[in-house]
Amino acid sequence: MSTETITRTETEGEREPPAPRACASLIELAGVEKVYRMGKVDYRALRGVDLVIDAGEMVAVVGPSGSGKTTILNLITGIDRPTSGTVVVDGQRLDEMSEEQLAVWRGGNVGIVFQFFQLLPTLSALENAVLPLDFARRGRKRERFERARHNLELVGLGDKLDHLPAELSGGEQQRVAIARSLAADPKLIVGDEPTGNLDTVTAAEMFELLERLNREGKTILFVTHDRQLAARAQRVVEIRDGVVVAS
C-alpha cells in the first residue's frame, strides 16, 4: 500500500483550487466542498478535499458513518455536484457538465456497483447487464448482447442469463451488477459498499473478482466499513468529518 501526502484544507473558503494536473492521474479532486441543505440546516459533508488517484490503482475509502465516503464517490461519478472545487476524471471536468452530459459520460466511462445491487427487477440478468450499452447505443444489438454475455460469464453467471433478480441470490445479483458495470469497458469501477450486503464467503469471492479486474488494468475505487477488506487494497484513503485524514 503506497502513501501519499494529501494537502489538507487550511482555512475554509480561502484556498484557490489547484489547477488540474496533466493526466498521469485518473481522478483529481481539488478543494472540493459539498454542503447538503436538510430542511433549514446546512450539512457540510465535505470540507475542502483534495484527492488524486492514478490509473490502475485499487483504492479503498474508509471512515465512520456520515464521514463523507459516499459523497466522494458520488462526486467522482457525477451523481452529485460539488458545492465548490473541481472534479476531474480522465481529463473531464465533471463539475462543468450538465446532467445530460454526465449521464452519457457515466454510461461510457464509469461502472458503478451499489450496496443493494439496484438491478431492474423486471429485466433478466442478461438484460440488466446490457442496459448501459443500450443507453449508449454502442454497436449493434447482437454485439451488445455478446458483450453482456461475455461479462456475465466473466463473473461466473453464464448459466443464469435469463434469470430475474428475484431468482438470484444476493451474491449472484451483485455479480450481475458487476457485469453491468463492465458493459462499456470503463477505465474506472466504483463500488459503494459492494460487499456490504453479502455474507463473508460471498464477499470474499466478490472482492477477488474486483482484484482480478484491477489486475487487468481497471482502476477500482470502493467504499467499505470492512477494515480487513480495505487492507487488501493498494491504498486506503481515510475520511473523517468531511476531511481526508490519511491516505
Binding site: I79, A103, R106, Q118, L120, F135
Partner: peptide
C-alpha cells in the same frame, strides 16, 4: 424515483 436515479447512473438520458 430511486430507480430513475440508477438508470441515470448507468447512462440513461432524459429521453430514455
Amino acid at each position: 424515483t430511486r430507480e430513475v436515479g440508477i438508470l441515470r447512473t448507468i447512462g440513461a438520458r432524459s429521453r430514455d
